[in-house]
Amino acid sequence: MPVTRSWEANSGAVRAGVDVASVAAVEASITRFGDRYLRRVFTDRELSDCARDDGPSAESLAARFAAKEAVVKVLRPGGRQLDWRSIEVRREPDGSCSLALAGEAARRAQHAGLDDLAVALSHEGDIAVALVVALGGSARGIEEPEGA
């Protein structure tokens, strides 16, 4: 019998967050505030990953800012503003990106039972976008008959 794979809808074990950021806005912030802006928002590794011969890549940093916001949507910290640097986007050797959490962001993820996060980044023109999907330890696939 053909089956479809789905996730438990009411377990709260799968969360997704998406956000966009303006490349021009990030570029303007770098121009106006320089290192103060960069060091307040991004980690050393992110700044290294986004370094180009002519300076930091606004496109790549905008995508990372969108990713941080997408993670915040996943973690749902309420009115609390997480330290932007506690959410780090890492470029992997194969060109993909991963997430590393620290401090309050890591504690929030642990408290929510989210132990696996995936991120995808893209940008086109002035818009950078990031999608984050988080899976919890209690997440499990269930098989249901097609059309159920």
Binding site: R32, R40, R80, Q81
Partner: peptide, 26 residues
Amino acid sequence: SHASVNVMLALEDAFDVEFPQELLRK
């Protein structure tokens, strides 16, 4: 959120202060 970062940095310049982490909330 991104504009609020700029607002925070500009306020620090305008008033010669630094927002501590505990005040960085919505």
